[in-house]
């Protein structure tokens, strides 16, 4: 799964720690999601969408769909 977390965070001038605080997870988790090493659970993905005030599909996309 691909995500635009890093770009969205940069647009808002948030550090990884800022985002981690808003999501109530560790900075290690934000870093793992951003670098594509970890796909978040649905509840966390929805929380990310809420924090960025965006629909979930504008943050996460299917890698296979994106490639085609």
């Amino acid at each position: 799964m691909r995500n635009r977390l890093k770009v969205l965070r940069a647009e808002r001038n948030w550090s990884q720690a800022d985002l981690a605080d808003r999501l109530e997870v560790s900075r290690q988790s934000v870093n793992a999601i951003e670098t594509g090493k970890y796909d978040p659970s649905l509840p966390l993905a929805f929380k990310i969408a809420r924090v960025f005030a965006l629909p979930i599909e504008q943050i996460f996309s299917d890698e296979v769909e994106a490639a085609s």
Binding site: V25, S26, S29, A32, I33, Y38, P40
Partner: peptide
């Protein structure tokens, strides 16, 4: 008490 990634 850990978050989901750390639990994983």
């Amino acid at each position: 008490e850990l978050d989901e990634f750390q639990r994983r």
